[in-house]
Design a protein around this nucleic acid. Structure first.
Length: 956
DNA sequence: ATCCAAGGAGGACCAAATATTAAGGGATGA
DNA sequence: AATGATCATCCCTTAATGTTTGGTCCTCCT
């Protein structure tokens, strides 16, 4: 759906598939779903166009500059012609007017509090965005003077995208509904499916009430297969596209209503699928393009399509000279492209991710694709089925994670176009909200000139030193809800409330009653009674919306709607938190250390104060049964050991403490009692596990933080062993069972009984230029040499196992591709897995429970004959195979013991000789004497060897 | 040309610096 | 009696090996 304006008429391009379209007699109501800017391809003037509403005269790009000193309204004309002249010189536009308008507006900068004084600003409107940028540069570089004086150097609101500018000014938010009243639009002749409408009579409905609904969006999911040459990544210039599988689904419906596959060459039929055979690649691409136009999807999704499939298709079409294909290029621009990007990956939590990766593994290896294609209709059918599956998976993934709806909610909440959520970062959302609030109060926002690399990081949050250990009493957890947002609200922190000493003196402001001083370098902010900040207002809106979403969630029973509401409240929470991040992003658009560093400074104070308050109030002296102790805390939470041994009382105390501490802070800062851990295993900062209780009857879950079970850079074996051990210890309270399980696993590992899938380690290949050698980096490099087509690329996770190598070889030399290892029967370095993967995590969790005895965990009985680890057969010292040699081994051991004894005796005598008496015990413990060490070692050798010998005696 | 939320923290590895031990070779003296 | 050859021993250097430390990288926590 698009609107375009040229010569005063606004043209709306609406989709015919939208319901309630009934030509000019009726309203058109539609959900605007994509909005961007481009050059109108159909007008000779190359005017800029917004695809949702296009504007040339009705809405022009503009920015503000402070009016020069002594500027009078009569100076406008002169100013305009002067600036126009400079622009003309710069642009050589052939005389076309570039500066459309200059107006005086009374505004106030958002940066700093200056006594609510509105000052004159010049609003400069340009004919296009390119000119705007030229003008911005000239003014910011100080190259424009008016009446002999340099103008500006600083510009306002010049760095916001045209599209967003338009949406903000017209109060259009992302994915809301737009209404065109009857008889205000007409259809465009050359493209019948599009219509025209005057801008002024468009109604934008805020996403409330009825307008919360979601249009029945069409989603096209597709995947292509290319016939690459052996070992070479397919290149569009040479390698043909051989199949394109497509599915079109209506959002919310279970099954696709179109399911087809375009194949090059014949292909056997597939159930419930249209198989469209082509014998010429160009024809196929053309037909596919026509199909996309016909299907007219709102959303196109696929695995990595934005980075591979789409560019490949366009490239390929260009090389095949498919003349009508460029049309697709235009279409493509009209849709948002959802890519399977990292954001989505972070949504896919460990289990979901593993689940889907598991399915993805069935992907045909690229080297086989060409063979299947060159086979017969049957083999091509097999390929088509894989291709269809690849098209289907993203669809299911999206349904499962409900990203579409979550994103929709996010677009509506923050007011940015839908596609920004995929292609842009967090900042744009805050900017959008900031501008929307600013415009209501005649604030203007300064544009940062050039990102000066002042990358000075500021101090972050405090992490209380943990009292490590295993707690067999309930531990209560108290959290500040939305800590950073509530600090900003409580202290009215905003760009518009910062005030410096000069201004304080000027305006006669009084400390504490008019302004406050924060713990960060004495930054000062005026209080809300003087002026309420924009950021606190934005945060209040977000958090009250979240409160509402959470309340609705409580009353909602339908699982689908519940998920939507949950997605919304999460989106709102995320948005609220990113406001703080926005002020702290030193390379961002509006960093403000006074705000961000004050926020963290307050946070640090608060966590310390909370600890003090709790520990000083909940004491025996004050009538409680125990002295409470804060055993850990990170950023916005404290873990309290009240000392009582039952859940009921702990929860009551937790509740009481939360209320008590909340009373010590400004509204809306609130400390909440959230949960109790019992038992609780605190391993280190940011590493703990515990059984999670919210009611005293039944525990909710096993919660683990930062431990190997939740980390993706460990192999599954480690994850599983740790997870199982934790379950046994924390849930079943069966320590010896956990120990036995760990021992059994180690034994299995050393006997090569562990499935290799359990040993695969994955690490992200995050950059191209590593200084330190690492297993996954080196392997990726080796794989690239072996087969560039399948080697991991930047951003991929590299999977590897550690194989046996020469003694002392570094881990990065022993990493290998798991598939390669399987195919070539390469032995795994099991001792690496024991020593480098399993041992440390195991020791970490058992150490607080078993103390020094934890060490023994890793010692596994081995056969005295062949060193094979023994299973739990109690008492035995040799494996089955060595049983016949038992006597021989015993003899050998006996000799060993004797040798050691002789050696020890010799050293012993030597020491006796040294002290001059052969009849007395040796007292000497001289650390300078080499004999002493040797004697000690010999003594230990004798003991060890004797112990082994003992075992034989037992086994007999 | 366009874009970018933060810091704190643990832990695995690698690599360099250092410390220790073992081995080798030359000087010395018997 | 003086010289030379041989050998054990010492000391030093070198190589190998073990340990600490600093930095990079990944991932997770809030």
């Amino acid at each position: 759906m698009e609107v375009q304006e040229s010569t005063g008429r606004t043209q709306i391009w609406a989709r015919p598939s939208i319901p309630c379209i009934n030509l000019e007699e009726h309203s058109i109501v539609f959900q605007q779903f994509e909005i961007d800017e481009c050059i109108d391809p159909h007008s000779a003037s190359r005017s800029p166009m917004i695809r949702m509403f296009g504007l040339t005269e009705g809405f022009l790009p503009y920015f503000y500059i402070p009016a020069p000193n002594g500027f009078k309204s009569g100076d406008v004309a002169e100013f305009k012609s002067n600036l126009e002249l400079v622009l003309q010189q710069e642009a050589s536009s052939g005389g076309r007017e570039l500066l459309n308008r200059v107006e005086v507006k009374f505004k106030e900068t958002i940066q700093g509090f200056h006594g609510k004084q509105k000052c004159p600003f010049l609003k400069l409107s340009f004919v296009d965005t390119k000119t705007l940028n030229v003008a911005r540069r000239i003014i910011e570089d100080g190259n424009f003077t008016f009446k002999g004086r340099e103008v500006g150097a600083i510009t306002f609101e010049s760095n916001i995208k045209y599209v967003l500018r338009f949406m903000i000014d017209c109060k259009v938010t992302g994915a809301n509904w737009i209404e065109l009243p009857p008889k205000t639009y007409r259809f465009c002749a050359e493209f019948e499916k599009y219509s025209r409408c005057q801008l002024e009579i468009i109604t934008s409905h805020p996403p409330e009430g009825d307008w919360l609904k979601i249009a029945p969006l069409r989603i096209l999911s597709f995947d292509i297969e290319c016939a690459g040459r052996k070992g070479i990544f397919p290149e569009a210039a040479q390698d043909p596209v051989i199949q394109i599988a497509n599915m079109v689904t209506i959002q919310g419906e279970k099954n696709p209503f179109i399911k087809n596959v375009f194949t090059l060459n014949s292909c056997s039929p597939i159930v419930a699928t249209d198989v469209l055979e082509y014998y010429n690649e160009g024809n196929m691409l053309q037909a596919w393009c026509d199909f996309v136009v016909e299907a007219d999807p709102d959303v196109i999704i696929g695995y990595n399509i934005a980075n591979f499939d789409l560019p490949y298709l366009i490239d390929r079409a260009y090389h095949l000279k498919v003349t009508r294909f460029p049309y697709f290029g235009r279409i493509k621009g009209d849709y948002m492209v959802m890519q399977r990007d990292h954001k989505l990956r972070s949504y896919t939590l460990n289990s979901v991710c593993a689940h889907f990766l598991g399915e993805q593994k069935e992907d045909v290896h690229h080297s086989i694709i060409t063979d299947l294609h060159n086979g017969n209709p049957e083999s091509r059918r097999r390929l088509a089925i894989y291709c269809l599956k690849d098209a289907y998976l993203p669809q299911r993934l999206m349904d499962k994670l409900m990203c579409l709806i979550n994103y929709l909610e996010m677009a509506r909440v923050t007011g940015v176009p839908f596609s920004y959520l995929l292609s842009r970062g967090q900042q744009i959302k805050v900017i959008s909200q900031l501008y929307r609030k600013a415009i209501e109060q005649d604030f203007v926002i300064p544009a940062r000139k050039n990102v000066d690399g002042t990358d000075e990081p500021f101090e972050g949050a405090t992490v209380i030193d943990p009292e490590k250990g295993f707690y067999n009493v309930p531990i209560a957890t108290l959290d500040f809800s939305s800590l950073y947002p509530s600090i900003m609200m409580a202290h009215n922190l905003c760009y518009s409330t910062i005030v410096d000493q000069r201004e304080i003196d000027n305006l006669g402001l009084k400390n504490d009653s008019d302004y406050i001083v924060t713990p960060y370098q004495s930054a000062r902010f005026v209080k809300a009674e003087v002026r309420k900040g924009l950021l606190p207002t934005i945060l209040e809106d977000l958090l009250s919306a979240r409160k509402k979403a959470k309340a609705d969630l409580k009353n909602e029973t339908d699982p689908f709607k519940r998920a939507v509401l949950d997605g919304r409240q999460l989106a709102l929470k995320m948005s609220a938190n990113s406001v703080y991040g926005f002020t702290g992003a030193s390379a961002g658009q509006m960093p403000c250390l006074e705000i961000s560093a004050s926020v963290t400074a307050y946070g640090r104070q608060m966590i310390e104060q909370t600890k003090r308050e709790v520990e000083s109030r909940f004491t025996i002296e004050n009538g409680y049964t125990h002295d409470a102790q804060v055993i850990y805390g990170d950023t916005d939470s404290v873990m309290v050991k009240f000392g009582v041994d039952n859940l009921d009382d702990t929860m009551k105390l937790g509740q009481e403490a939360a209320e008590y501490v909340t009373g010590k802070f400004l509204r809306p800062i609130k400390l909440e009692f959230e949960k109790v851990y019992f038992p609780y295993l605190l391993i280190n900062k940011k590493r703990y596990a515990g059984l999670y209780w919210t009611n005293p009857q039944k525990w909710d879950k096993l919660d683990t933080k930062g431990i190997e079970t939740v980390r993706r850079d460990n192999c599954l074996l480690v994850q599983n062993v740790i997870e199982t051990c934790l379950r046994k210890v924390l849930i079943d309270r069966d320590v010896s069972g956990a120990v036995a399980y760990a021992k059994k696993t180690i034994s299995d590992l050393l006997q090569n009984k562990i499935d290799m899938s359990q040993l695969v380690i994955t690490k992200a290949l995050s950059k191209s230029d590593y200084s330190a050698k690492q297993p996954h980096v080196e392997l990726a490099e080796r794989m690239r040499k072996r087969d560039p087509g399948s080697a991991p690329t930047l951003g991929d996770r590299v999977a590897y196992v550690i194989i046996k190598g020469t003694k002392g070889a570094a881990a990065y030399e022993k990493s290998e591709d798991p598939i390669y290892v399987l195919e070539n029967n390469i032995p795994i370095d099991t001792s690496y897995y024991l020593e480098n993967q399993l041992s440390k995590p195991l020791l970490r969790i058992f150490e607080p429970i078993l103390g020094d005895k934890a060490e023994s965990l890793l010692i596994v009985p081995t056969c005295l004959g062949c060193k094979v680890p023994l299973t739990k057969d109690a008492g035995s010292v040799v494996c089955r195979h060595c049983k016949p040699k038992l006597g021989e081994l015993y003899q050998k051991q006996l000799v060993t013991v004797n040798d050691f004894e002789t050696r020890f005796a010799r050293l012993w005598t030597q020491c006796q000789r040294c002290q001059g008496s052969l009849h007395q015990d040796i007292l000497c413990s001289s650390r300078d004497c080499p004999i002493w060490y040797m004697r000690k070692k010999a003594q230990k050798d004798v003991q060890d060897a004797s112990t082994v010998l003992e075992k034989f005696n037992c086994a007999w």
